[in-house]
Design a binder for these strands. Sequence first.
DNA 1: CATGAATGAGCTTTCATTCAT
DNA 2: GATGAATGAAAGCTCATTCAT
Lengths: 202, 202, 202, 202
Amino acid sequence: MPRKSNTAERRREIVAALLAVMAERGYDGASIQAIARTAGLAPGLVHYHFENKEAILLDLVASLAQVGRARYEMLAASAASPHARLQAYIDARLATGPGADPAAVAAWVMVGAEAVRQLQVRRAYQDALAPELAMLTELLRDCLEADGRSQARAAQLAASLLAFIEGAFQLSSAARELMPEAYAAQMALQLVQRFIAAEPAA
Amino acid sequence: MPRKSNTAERRREIVAALLAVMAERGYDGASIQAIARTAGLAPGLVHYHFENKEAILLDLVASLAQVGRARYEMLAASAASPHARLQAYIDARLATGPGADPAAVAAWVMVGAEAVRQLQVRRAYQDALAPELAMLTELLRDCLEADGRSQARAAQLAASLLAFIEGAFQLSSAARELMPEAYAAQMALQLVQRFIAAEPAA
Amino acid sequence: MPRKSNTAERRREIVAALLAVMAERGYDGASIQAIARTAGLAPGLVHYHFENKEAILLDLVASLAQVGRARYEMLAASAASPHARLQAYIDARLATGPGADPAAVAAWVMVGAEAVRQLQVRRAYQDALAPELAMLTELLRDCLEADGRSQARAAQLAASLLAFIEGAFQLSSAARELMPEAYAAQMALQLVQRFIAAEPAA
Amino acid sequence: MPRKSNTAERRREIVAALLAVMAERGYDGASIQAIARTAGLAPGLVHYHFENKEAILLDLVASLAQVGRARYEMLAASAASPHARLQAYIDARLATGPGADPAAVAAWVMVGAEAVRQLQVRRAYQDALAPELAMLTELLRDCLEADGRSQARAAQLAASLLAFIEGAFQLSSAARELMPEAYAAQMALQLVQRFIAAEPAA
DNA sequence: CATGAATGAGCTTTCATTCAT
DNA sequence: GATGAATGAAAGCTCATTCAT
């Protein structure tokens, strides 16, 4: 009688360990030994569950994207208007407080850097961002429409908001001391809203 | 009479080589051997001019900051108004075209990731950003003043613009295919200007 | 009543899998996991049936020797004269065509290499070759006697034929493209026959 | 002022160490550590001089081929007739005595096994054998011609002699105890000569 | 200043073997 | 009998750094 498979759980543990180690030491600093130690596993077991180190990273990218999506959907559930959903989106990404996870944010910054140089990671990174961008464009289109504004630059506005968010992650991870307190969520919302308000009518 | 020292030049070459290699392979992928090969030097010579690998990186951070500053000053030289200087700043950072240097942008993204985990690099990164942020705050204060708006949130606006720029660097390095064409400079300027225009009067 | 043991069959499957994997990747490349996969079994089961990896190899050596012996006996059954039996022997070893098994030949070459460095394997290899050599010596003695020739060098001739065969295996496995088409069986027979014909009378 | 390069010598030492270790433990058993220890070098230095382990093996194959060629040429220098050159060739390969090098023979057997499964090694192995076979064919053609015999089967005879030699190497490495004393050189010569003598006239 | 050989620690990965179920 | 998760010791290879010349 075979032992009950716990592969799914082990894989989750390993991915979580990569996130934790990566947030502090980066991807190259996240040695298999360190990941295993953090997860409380034997080093060999990591490679039993993942073909190689990159595979863990790809899993992590998908996992972080999935967590972000889930947080937005939770916050957006009670949003009645497009503008409320926009606020929900920005809060899901940028709000500080109990839901915020600095380690995940730092890990995401590391993912972004790895995406620059590893093709597979770049693909996973883009696979995470593409639906995000599409959803955001749709959301902003709704906001523009609700205000009777031209939707022509919805995509550019979505890209801008995404850039703002990625940059806020970077700065909060590497230059928190320099930044004003809790500026990000509020400023993002106002920048977008004032931009929309000044767009030409549809 | 000793022959003239070429240390300064050699150091510049080595830093430039780190930039080039780092843009493609990241900091950990930038081995001393690879840097030396790119610079056309013997590996041992690198350690003659730099105490260790981190020292090259610290030099690179300062060098990138300095180049950015110089570009802004060149563009700002002919700017008559605060708003013109704001445009000069944004163009210096985000304009595509001949002045743009994708390798430097990618290297800066790598620097940002290293700053998350290496104390010395974080310090250098912050030493580069702090004056930038101060200068930008001053610039935005001038813009707000020129428009007769409250300057209370100049610092937050500066931080936001910086976040946008860092994020735009990240996305242009790792997800260029997903982003709209040349959105960054134009959107950055309009987002800031519309925000300013909607600020309460001073 | 316990269910019937299938140990013997499982062992055969595992040995066959070792042969197949070894022919392509060598002994060190034949990991237990690969053997199990090829045999369609769970890795743990391999060690249930064999104490360790070497034990499978020892079984394989015996099995290959046994298969070779069986093939000779089948061909020799209808051989009326010593010379006919010699031809049967050479055909059993070297004839190309339906009976030939390149994987088994390649595996045997690998066995030969392992025999050089592993004492137990060398013993098994020699235990396979010794009766072969004895039988061949006897066979050649019969041929020499039938032709009225001195039998003094029967053992040396047997050794030579064995060397030729082992070498033909090696070359057919690693340099097939270089060798003439189907030279081995015919040349072996003629070399031996002409040697015998030129031996001094008894 | 650079240190004088000793790369060529180091490479020779490493190849020699591979030969020695491989003869006793096979290719997979010849770990870089073991090679380095045998050569009296630091492990890292091995990879400084060779890109990877396979590269050492490829060098070894070429080196063994070269040594064999040199030994034949030395012995053949004083050979007046084709038959004398044939004897020189066989002696160069098979004669026991002071010139014989059991470790090189064993290493060659290991090379042969690796050639079965590694493409690059197979190519090097064939690159070593092809000129050997060509030269041998030419040599046998000369012998056949000198005796007024048909040269039609010179290539097949050359292949046969090569097979005999490879097989004799295998058996001397893994089953020396079973084989008659010093049979190989004498038997090879006589087998070939009697075959030639019985060929049809040209 | 410059060279490039040398060192050894540390990395990812593989694998025979064990064992709880 | 059978499963597959788990272990830990190697393996090949990379690399920052040192140093004789």
